[in-house]
Amino acid sequence: MPQVERFPMGIPSGWFCIGYCDEFERGDIHAVHYFGRDLVVFRNDEGEMGLLDAYCPHLGAHLGHGGTIEGDSIRCPFHGWAFRPDGFCTKIPYGKIFPPRLKREPLAESYPVVERNGVVWAWYHPHGQKPHYEVMTHDEFTEDGWADPVRRIWRFASNPQEIAENGVDFAHFEFVHKMDAVPEGTAVYDKHIRKSEAHGHRQITLEDGSTKEIESSVFTVQNGAGQKFTRLKGVVELSMMVLATPIEKDDVELRFTFTHPPVEPGSPEEKAVEQAIAGTCGQTGVEGDIPIWHNKIHRANPFLCDGDGPILRLRRYFEQFYVDDEQPSLAAAE
């Protein structure tokens, strides 16, 4: 029997997190690997971020190992050729005649980069097409009046679609996370955007042993394959970014970034926020999912029942992010 391919889908196109803005000072250079490619990310002396193919188009030296920043460009360690974030060559230090072609078009392969919500976002498309939608801005991560972000990161063998699918797989919350049934709520799909909202009630136990019913809500917006934002209200108010970035088609980096309205240090409210974050990240949260994601396969034609949630609808939404030969197998008909 032939080996089963774990994931028939390739690497989706879209905006993806490649780090946080405060991780890159002027002059910083980092060798990274995303989208199945060796890349170099840097901030030039003018403060502009750049993401280029790692290997110099001249004779193939890795720009991220020994390269330096000079003005608006990254300089190759091998022969000193310099490149701006847009891929244009700005200097050949020993060349007497600057090739006319280099004045007309970029020589190094570059990727669009923007900084938003404290995140450095890179646009990936397998054929180099320009972005056809923008990164969303979230007030909680851009405006004053919110707590400093709390960050977590994991790496495991999966992909952005599998991670997103968990959000509509309502049955797993009971068996993986030992939670009560999660209300489905409503979901709206509009091209690359998916929005969902659910409301309910929770019973909490107070310090004196009594119980209290509180209203709870979950609002989520997915902006392409790599940007997801969730606002949770209940015992505490918590906002989070879910940032899934493909390293290879079966290797993913997952970041959670949290913020919340300010609370008094040492207060019961601060403890409740810490517990909520720990619960979202720990065994009752994503760390309960990761071993399953890491070892499962993608069933293109799954056997589903009426309690499984709108899994196939989410898969149809994700199909738009795959290009040509990276198109996944068609989902089973509902």
Rank of each mutant, 00 (worst) to 15 (best):
G60Y: 09
F7K: 01
H33F: 04
G27N: 09
C76W: 04
V235E: 14
P246I: 07
N223P: 00
V32A: 06
V263I: 11
F258K: 02
L63D: 01
R194M: 15
E269H: 01
P328R: 03
K271W: 00
P112D: 07
P246T: 07
N44D: 15
V40T: 11
A54L: 13
N295Y: 03
K233G: 03
T259W: 03
P149K: 06
V113R: 01
P160S: 08
Y124A: 03
G285L: 07
V263F: 07
K233Q: 13
I247M: 07
C21E: 15
A181D: 10
P262F: 10
V40P: 00
G80M: 12
D45A: 15
P12Q: 05
H132R: 12
N166P: 02
C305D: 10
E115M: 08
C17Q: 09
G64R: 07
H125W: 10
G234P: 03
P12R: 02
G87I: 04
N117P: 08
G71M: 09
A187R: 08
G224M: 05
F321C: 05
G14H: 07
P160E: 12
G95P: 00
A272Y: 06
H127Y: 12
V168C: 11
H125K: 10
T137P: 02
D144P: 00
I214K: 02
P100W: 10
D86C: 08
S210H: 04
D28S: 15
P291L: 13
R84V: 04
G185Q: 06
V273W: 01
E23W: 09
H138D: 00
R194A: 12
Y111T: 06
F16M: 09
G200F: 01
S329F: 06
S110K: 04
I193C: 11
D22K: 00
E115D: 09
P99S: 07
V236T: 13
N44L: 05
R255I: 05
I292M: 14
V41Y: 00
G71Q: 08
A181V: 14
K191F: 09
H260R: 08
S239C: 13
F318M: 15
E213M: 01
L304C: 12
R26C: 14
V4A: 13
A147Y: 05
D139I: 06
I74K: 04
E215Q: 14
D289G: 07
I29K: 03
E197H: 12
R37K: 15
G209K: 02
T68I: 09
D325E: 15
R155T: 15
Q203H: 04
G285H: 04
D169T: 03
Q283Y: 06
V235I: 14
R84T: 13
P328N: 10
V218C: 00
A278T: 14
D190S: 15
R299H: 11
C21K: 13
K103W: 01
E215Y: 06
F24G: 01
T230M: 11
H127G: 02
A333P: 00
G309R: 05
H132N: 13
I18F: 07
